[in-house]
Design a protein around this nucleic acid. Sequence first.
DNA 1: CTAGGGTTACGA
DNA 2: TCGTAACCCTAG
Length: 647
Amino acid sequence: MSASASKVSSLSDEQIINRWGFDYYVFKALSAFRDADYTAFTHFTSIIENLVVRPVDGHSDMIVKLRCMQFLSRINNGDKLDLTFEEPKTPLESAVSVLESICRDMSVPPREQERVKQAIIETLIMVCLRSGEFTRAEEVLLRHFSDAEDSAGKKKLFESLIRRRRSSHSVLQLSSYADFKQDMLDFIERLYRVPEPFLLQMLKRSGHPGVSSEPVTSSSQDRQKTSAAAEHHGGVCARLSLHSLRQVYGVLSERYGVSVSFTQLQQELEEEQEQEESPELHLALSETPREQPEPPYAGMTISRLVQEDDSQLSAAEEEEEETQISSPHSECSPAQICTPARHTQKHNRIVLSSDVEAEDHAASPPSSRRSSRHKQQKKSVHSESKCVMVEDDGGSSAQVCSPARPSSSSSSPAVRRSARDTQRQSRIVLSSDVEPEDHATSPPSSRRSSRHKQQQKSVHSAGESALVSSPAHPSSPASVRRSDRDTQNQSSESECVMEVEDGGSCVQHSTPARPSATDTQRHNRSVTVSSESEDHNSSPAPQTPRRRSSPSSGGAHKRRRARWQDVSGTHENWSDEESLFSATSGRSSKKYSRKMWTVQESEWLKEGVRRFGAGHWEKIRSSFPFTGRTAVNLKDRWRTMLKLRLV
DNA sequence: CTAGGGTTACGA
DNA sequence: TCGTAACCCTAG
């Protein structure tokens, strides 16, 4: 069997094992969410985020899972208005974006989608009202609230509350945020039932006490019978004995109603082998599933059984097609089926799909809000944005992150927290982006571009500390950073960070580093670059939109979004939203957003070039959780990096 | 989809 | 006002 494994493809052990880990942590994250253990949830999502940056055997449902994580992480932080996953958006607005992606991938009934979206928007408005953010509530109301007749009453009520600046009302007390979270979880679970992860199955089969399958569906009993296979968690099925196979086959055939007996199958197999090598069977026995469309039963057979679910091990593709019949896999994840998503997944396999990310919608409408707020001090705005960047960078070191990413998308998006109102605008960013590799850390200060010189001081303090610390952390899920404009707050900031984590969104992170970083940041925009290493740029750039001459923001933004959404498949919706943005937001008719490259993004790019070679921008883009970056952007960035000799 | 040249936002 | 990273446009 081992041989088979190798055959399967050129998957590395890391890819395979990361996939197991990925599946496991997604499972655990959902369990934690279900149990209202949101701290644990954020821990798991952080792990996932970081895991995704590593090579993973991307399989069919990975994207779906990432999207679910993104969605839930945003929901989880939805009551924290000062957090941001995507630049200008509140967590719940980001959740809506992710929802759209999910719906697209999984073909969710329009009604259901609308219902969930409406629930999110209403909750967001209530959150805003409760916290006295009337202006924001109004914005959300105008921008997103359904025009459907049946919601007209609520709309009026909210308008009334906003007008009267009422932050307390019976309506606002009726629903608890906790219930909302669970409602959203229910939605996700209805859509997609996460199969019991391979690792857990193996553990169970091995007879490990105390293992319980939580959320998932599966019926453990049957599986246990199959325990034979379990013995080696690691080895997977490779060494099954015939006896084991027979047992497993018995269970599965029963479950699936396969009438062919094991013996018959065996005979068939032998015959076929003689005739030719029938790959399928071959594989089957060998244990690695193969992709071919398997014949009716043969395929479904054993191979999978044993192997299990997992096709995980190997080829993802195979799974996609087979699923139904085949195997355990299917059993475990009935849900999958609903989603067409699988198809979409396409090639993500290698790394993670970009999906993770979040998109950048955020980017587009980014600064507008704030900027408007802060109008007074333009500078301040800048600084903020910069801060953001910084954070990201830092992110590498300290990222905290939000799950999403996953997307990714991750990716993912950074979460920020700003003390908005008040004078300070500190923000925390949890970068959802995971960080990938550590390289980031490496090239820290040395490279800095001339520009940064000035800032270096800040950089040092901030950046370096960050850097140093960070390497290790990459794993830490999200780094949260916060920059304040006011220096005083710094200390507080760091604290905030902590809080955030607790809150759930992010959890781990290395605290130490951050603080310093934060401080520095604020003052200097420069900070940004530094921290991570990369420096290339780093200017902090928040995202300012920019687009060519036309201020008509719409166009520009759309593009960006679209792109990243492509991955996930969202786009279109945005157009709507955009229009909304531009239309309603008196704030700033934003123009365009110029988004500086973060260290992390640059690292991804470098890694992508290393893997695929320069010129394969689209491939690189889709292999990493870039958000809001087009292949052209990547190309341009690479050109800049070359120019600056950053690579 | 990519390469390459032009344009623009933004800090200094 | 200048330099430049990010971004746009267009040809191939």
